[in-house]
Amino acid sequence: MTEPRFRVRARHTPSTVTVYQAYRPEIGGPAASSGRFPAAWKRDRMTWIKPSFLWMMYRCGWGTKEGQETVLAIEISREGFEWALRHACLSSYVRGLHPDQVTWQRQLRRAPTRVQWDPERNLHLQSLPYRSLQLGLSGEAARRYADEWTVAISDVTPLAHEIHALVRSGDRDAAARLLPQERPYPAGDDLLSHLRP
């Protein structure tokens, strides 16, 4: 079956959704050990969360890029995730979806969350023909994410390194078996109609 170009895929349970971020060890380590973002984590800055493990690996170079050495899996409440989608604006103007550029710019300024759809990646971090959701959280959304939505934080850097080593050695099947199981998220038109280009 052909994968839709725009669909949310994530590891999820009846109550949570897993998203990924990568930080320098001084932030990632304390966050994973306490299950909460430390004081050094800035609630007044935009933070991007990614439900796709492989897109996160593309972004952080399997946890090797400077400042992104600690890869975190953050379980957040589905209520929070869906609030973020409902209050989001696309990060770029789309003719036909937005009435005009001025209206889109006004929506973008007011929205506490924004959405980008970037090419999903395979195990070799090459682009796939369908898109992966990135959610940018700012202001109220960033504060809710850190203080209300976060259920658990775990350090998945060793997993990232193990999968990367298997890919480099050519054992693609073993690498694929270790990947987090991401399934289509049951997001209907009420959540996504204003976010699909």
Results as ranks from 00 to 15, higher is better:
14 P>K: 01
16 T>M: 05
150 T>A: 14
196 R>G: 00
110 R>W: 00
179 L>M: 07
18 T>M: 04
186 P>T: 04
86 R>G: 00
77 S>R: 15
149 W>S: 08
50 K>L: 06
53 F>L: 08
138 S>N: 10
29 G>F: 04
14 P>L: 01
174 A>V: 04
46 M>S: 07
28 G>C: 11
61 G>E: 02
157 T>E: 10
107 Q>K: 13
143 R>N: 09
167 V>P: 01
134 Q>A: 06
99 P>F: 02
109 R>L: 10
196 R>H: 04
118 D>M: 02
80 G>L: 07
170 G>C: 05
132 S>Y: 01
91 S>K: 05
8 V>S: 05
172 R>S: 08
88 A>K: 03
107 Q>V: 00
73 A>D: 03
182 E>L: 03
187 A>V: 03
1 M>S: 13
176 A>C: 01
166 L>W: 05
155 D>Q: 09
176 A>I: 00
13 T>Q: 09
59 R>C: 04
178 L>K: 15
141 A>V: 03
6 F>E: 02
168 R>H: 03
66 E>Q: 13
187 A>I: 03
93 Y>H: 14
62 W>C: 04
65 K>Q: 14
92 S>K: 14
44 D>W: 12
6 F>H: 15
190 D>G: 05
70 T>E: 07
161 H>A: 05
82 E>N: 09
182 E>H: 04
100 D>S: 08
16 T>Y: 10
192 L>P: 00
65 K>F: 02
85 L>G: 02
83 W>D: 06
116 Q>Y: 12
66 E>C: 02
55 W>N: 05
118 D>N: 11
75 E>M: 06
38 P>L: 08
137 L>Y: 04
90 L>Y: 02
137 L>E: 01
40 A>P: 01
101 Q>E: 15
74 I>A: 11
113 T>V: 10
18 T>S: 15
151 V>S: 09
97 L>S: 03
30 P>F: 02
190 D>S: 15
133 L>I: 05
131 R>H: 12
139 G>K: 12
174 A>R: 15
92 S>L: 07
183 R>T: 13
189 D>Q: 14
178 L>N: 01
113 T>I: 01
154 S>V: 11
148 E>A: 13
40 A>W: 00
86 R>I: 00
134 Q>V: 05
52 S>F: 03
193 S>Y: 01
171 D>L: 04
148 E>I: 07
5 R>H: 07
110 R>Y: 00
67 G>A: 08
43 R>V: 09
25 P>C: 06
61 G>Q: 06
188 G>P: 11
99 P>D: 12
145 Y>S: 11
13 T>Y: 04
15 S>T: 15
27 I>P: 05
62 W>I: 04
64 T>R: 14
140 E>L: 13
124 H>L: 10
126 Q>I: 00
5 R>Q: 12
124 H>G: 04
98 H>I: 00
148 E>K: 10
117 W>D: 07
83 W>Y: 14
115 V>P: 03
